[in-house]
């Protein structure tokens, strides 16, 4: 055992900066994935066949291949095809957002079908147009039911975000590796970074609990 925590002290600010770098694209990816996922979920329950087909094919593709492969295709292969030099940040958002939306769409679809059919009928009978009914009546109830599953997806995304270290994006994980390589000591920086990830996920769980409490009015 030759642990020496003092050695990483000069690198702590460098590693802490990684929190914000990671959070930046995780937050954007979550929002992006949630919006696209909601639209896909609406496609899946739509009566228009091509939309349903598209959403199902999309989900099948993004769930059926490794995330790291999707990231590589977007970061390495797309520039070859289009000549556009895509930044690591944009690649990360696209890969994580598009991937997450496939999972989120399944969660939301299940949530929507779990809402009592009578709710739709009551809204329809009052003359509420489809869009408004979805936004005001169905989705809020669906969201309440699926919140734990949704939080789970967001937590997974936060942790999986470490995969962007493979395209040289200086996120939390990458910074841990850089410090390890500089010091020829890996245990301390990796453990440090690991604690930060755990902390981030804890905060996310607490937010989830809080939102769940807020949404349970009326029960």
């Amino acid at each position: 055992m030759n642990l020496d925590w003092s050695q990483i002290v000069p690198y702590i600010p460098f590693m802490l900066e990684g929190i914000w770098v990671t959070l930046q694209f995780v937050i954007v990816s979550i929002i992006f994935g949630f919006i696209v996922g909601t639209v896909l979920a609406l496609f899946k329950i739509s009566s228009i066949k091509p939309l349903r087909f598209f959403a199902d094919a999309y989900t099948s593709m993004f769930r059926g291949t490794p995330l790291i492969l999707q990231l590589m295709i977007i970061y390495l292969a797309v520039p070859q095809l289009t000549g556009y030099d895509i930044s690591p940040f944009l690649s990360a958002i696209l890969a994580f957002g598009l991937n997450s939306s496939a999972y989120v769409s399944e969660i939301i679809r299940a949530g929507i079908s779990a809402v009592d059919k009578g709710q739709t009928e009551a809204a329809v009978a009052l003359g509420v147009p489809y869009r408004q009914m979805m936004i005001d009546i169905i989705l809020p109830q669906a969201l309440k039911n699926i919140l734990p599953a949704l939080m789970n997806e967001f937590i997974t995304l936060t942790k999986e975000s470490a995969i962007v270290s493979t395209i040289g994006y200086l996120d939390l994980m990458r910074r841990g590796q850089v410090v390890g390589a500089n010091l020829y000591r890996n245990f301390e920086p990796l453990l440090f970074v690991g604690l930060i990830y755990w902390g981030l996920v804890m905060v996310l769980s607490l937010i989830g609990k809080w939102v769940e409490g807020r949404l349970s009015v009326g029960d």
Binding site: D116, G118, Q119, E121, A122, A123, I137, P140, Q141, K144, L215, V217, G218, D219
Partner: peptide, 8 residues
């Protein structure tokens, strides 16, 4: 079965 909106 009434179908009131439970979240309102």
């Amino acid at each position: 079965h009434f179908h009131l909106f439970p979240h309102l």
